[in-house]
Design a protein around this nucleic acid. Structure first.
Length: 747
DNA sequence: CGTAGTTTTGTTTTT
DNA sequence: CAAAACTACG
């Protein structure tokens, strides 16, 4: 019990309040994970059976960690506590009871690729032009319906214009296809569970009894469907504890409804509210900066985090000519930190808005020999070779999974091409049977006579695998597939780098199967094919990080949520990139911008000791060079909290370049690249005295003045024949001046 | 039926 | 600048 003394006052309140609804408003770094784990431990210690506790976390990794921590405090019983993500919990429930809804318990879980395949098929069938209705857009629409628990019928009822009606029709057919394939997509996992509970009260009752104490973390990112799910489960005993921070709500695009947390007190009027506002993670400067940025948002609950930590470094801000130099600088800093023994590689994280930005950093890290890992982006499981092999496993596991069957029908090449596939599909549609069943009776289909023997041998092959699956372990089965299809053998013959990489991935897959089997054996569970496939579908990249290895992490700001690092680099701080282009334009409602700002808030508050913001003037984006201004979020940080890195070298201007990109490489590159750009801008700057012509710098740029030194341009006004420029100088404060006189130079 | 070569298209963010 | 989608040829 003594461990509770290490908690502060509100933290203790939250831990000790076990009965009835509880809302914990937990600011960034306020120790909410500690509170949650202690709360679960306290529940168990005060006699609640671990069996009766359900804790929902945002990632599987967080779930594992929480389970371990609870175990460390309580010692026993953690096995029985359910700690998992919404999706995992739902799968567990559905595997047991989905037959109530007419699905087979061996249902497949479709990922984005599979969904797209189905959508394409649906559009073809319904004669929907995918040039007009993009698959991606349709998927997003359908997903939103599901987030709100709209059935296809609901969607059709609410559809007023042509587009909406079409979308609803696609939705209906899409759901029909999924059912035919005995498959669920991610959103279905939640929606079908709610459906199960609503249609079968006895099932709901079972789980209500089972989960008398429910905890939901990251509550600000739940959508309506998840809210409904939790409400149903908690209805009976009302022991619902939700934890969240409205300032960190960053998943609105996937249906997260901030009202869930903002209106919790209305829905549960007897709820106790605890606010955790003391931050234990970051320095004062970091926290101050974060507070100032987020204060620009209007749609939020007023609050102010504070800390007893030291003041610490200022927020470092550096602007570069292009993305290469930005990456070089960041990598150089990490190298320096490591060399000077100030930080391990794992203490540094590089964050960015979009996954595409990881490339430059990856290249530079590779050259520098710094161990790193990219989180997210192209998922391991979405590589072709892996998807192919998994499609075999899925075909074996779920006889109705047409998407998988079609994928492997001609992989490896069996001489069964698109034409044949189309004819079989047509037959299957006409006769209302599954694709695989159509293959089995292919002799009935006159049009495919030529390929008949090939089809027959494929069918026999799959049937044989299914028989084997009953006696083999998952690993043995996978190895059998790799072997008997000749998949690996074909790749070996190719003998290219590409093929080698794929072979490595296949080995990796075998390793993962083995790891799954081991984990199940350790937990005393049964390793099943369904179980493995489920893990494959639901385990995100971030879940597989091991804390023991010393590598620098690269990831999106979204992925960084819930993590912390001593040294954080937030890169690509440019208007148009972050905040993203689509968030800037909408003048009507700036809620998109506010979401971006919350993302910025999340980013800054990941930092414990140091936060560095970087940006580039010039950047290659989808094959084109783009010019960007410094992100408005940088400007929202008070000037006195920012270090520009130039001030000290005022007397020796040349040194700043060495500081920025301290390799010969970078200076060569700059000379090379900068030329065309300089040629263009210099004459403009000179003539700007006469006419209001474009300046070489813009709002947010870092500039140098002969006398005042370095500063940031905060405003530019067009004043007749010249510009009036407002600059916030490092050492002289805010000055207004005419561009023609000031002869400011962009850095 | 399969492949190589060509054109088009596209960006948030994730379970 | 990619990846994906399409086309034309063997």
């Amino acid at each position: 019990m003594s461990s509770y003394e290490t908690l502060n006052q509100p933290q203790q309140e939250a831990v000790l309040h076990t009965e009835g609804p509880l809302l914990i408003l937990a600011g960034a770094g306020s120790g909410k994970t500690r509170v949650l784990t202690h709360r679960i431990a306290y529940l168990i210690e005060s006699g609640v059976s671990p069996w009766n506790i359900l804790a929902i976390t945002f990632t599987n990794k967080a779930a594992d960690e929480m389970r371990q921590r609870v175990d460390r405090i309580v010692g026993t019983g953690r096995e029985a506590v359910w700690v998992s993500t919404f999706h995992s919990a739902c799968v567990r429930i559905l595997r047991r009871h989905i037959d109530f809804l007419g699905f087979d318990n061996h249902f497949a879980i479709y990922d984005t690729d599979d969904q797209k395949t189905v959508i394409k098929e649906v559009c073809r069938k319904l004669n929907v032009d995918t040039k007009v209705f993009k698959e991606k857009a349709l998927m997003a629409e359908i997903s939103h319906y599901k987030d709100k628990l709209y059935t296809p019928e609901d969607a059709e009822k609410e559809a007023y214009d042509f587009n909406e009606k079409k979308t609803a029709a696609v939705y209906r057919e899409y759901q029909a296809q999924l059912r035919k394939n005995n498959a669920l997509d991610f959103d279905d996992l939640i929606m079908r569970t709610v459906e199960l509970f609503e249609k079968h009260p006895q099932v709901l009752d079972y789980y209500q009894e089972r989960f008398r104490y429910i905890c939901v973390d990251e509550y600000q990112d739940t959508n309506y469907a998840q809210f409904r799910l939790v409400s149903l489960l908690a209805e009976k005993y009302r022991n619902l504890c939700v934890v969240g921070d409205d300032d960190q709500s960053i998943y609105r695009f996937r249906g997260a409804d901030i009202r869930n947390i903002l209106e919790f007190e209305q829905i549960f009027p007897d709820a106790k509210v605890v606010r955790l506002e003391q931050n234990y993670r970051s320095t004062q400067n970091i926290l101050e900066a974060a507070n100032h940025v987020i204060a620009n948002n209007t749609e939020r609950k007023e609050k102010r985090l504070w800390t007893e930590n030291e003041e610490g470094d200022k927020i470092h801000f550096r602007q570069f000519l292009n993305g290469f130099e930005e990456a070089e600088y960041v990598v150089g800093e990490i190298e320096k930190l490591h060399r000077e023994g100030r930080a391990g590689y794992r203490d540094c994280a590089v964050l960015y808005r979009t996954n595409a930005q990881s490339r430059l950093f990856e290249e530079k890290l590779l050259v520098a020999g710094i161990p790193y890992k990219i989180v997210g982006g192209i998922n391991f499981y979405s590589r072709k070779e892996i998807k192919d092999l998994l499609a075999y496993l899925r075909t074996i596991d779920n006889a109705k999974d047409d998407v998988s069957v079609r994928r492997i029908l001609n992989v490896p090449k069996r001489g069964i091409g698109d034409t044949t596939q189309g004819r079989v599909q047509e037959y299957a549609d006409d006769m209302q049977v599954s694709f695989f069943d159509a293959l089995r009776v292919a002799e009935e289909i006159p049009a495919v006579k030529r390929s008949l023997p090939k089809i027959d041998s494929f069918v026999t092959f799959i049937m044989a695998l299914r028989t084997k699956a009953e006696v083999l372990t998952v690993r043995e089965l996978l190895e059998d597939v790799i072997d008997s299809t000749g998949y690996a053998a074909d790749l070996e013959k190719e003998n290219t780098d590409e093929a080698k990489a794929r072979l490595e991935n296949i080995d990796e897959l075998i390793t993962k199967v083995q790891a799954y089997q081991d984990a199940m054996a350790e937990r005393g569970g049964q390793a099943t094919l369904s179980g493995f496939l489920e893990e494959v579908a639901l385990v995100a990249d971030i879940d597989t990080l091991d804390n023991a290895s010393d590598y620098t992490l690269l990831m999106t700001l979204h992925s960084a949520k819930g993590l912390e690092f001593p040294y954080v680099f937030i890169t690509g701080m440019e208007d148009g990139l972050f905040p993203g282009g689509s968030a800037i334009y909408r003048s009507e409602s700036d809620s998109a911008l506010q979401e971006e700002r919350r993302l910025m808030y999340v980013g800054i508050t990941r930092g414990m000791k140091s936060v560095t913001l970087t940006c580039a003037r010039q950047r290659m984006l989808r094959g084109e060079v783009q010019f960007h201004n410094v992100s408005q979020f940088v400007r929202e940080i008070p000037r006195e909290l920012v270090d520009l890195g130039y001030a000290v070298q005022e007397k020796k201007p040349d040194r700043e370049k060495m500081l920025q990109g301290d390799s010969v490489y970078s200076r060569m590159k700059e000379a090379f690249r900068a030329k065309p750009y300089m040629q263009e801008s210099r004459p403009r700057a000179q003539t700007s005295v006469n006419h209001a012509e474009p300046l070489e710098y813009g709002t947010g740029d870092t500039v140098r003045h002969v006398k005042f030194g370095v500063g940031i341009v905060t405003d530019i006004k067009e004043g007749g024949r010249d510009y009036e420029v407002t600059v916030d100088f490092d050492r002289f404060g805010v000055k207004k001046m005419f561009a023609g006189f000031a002869r400011l130079k962009k850095i």
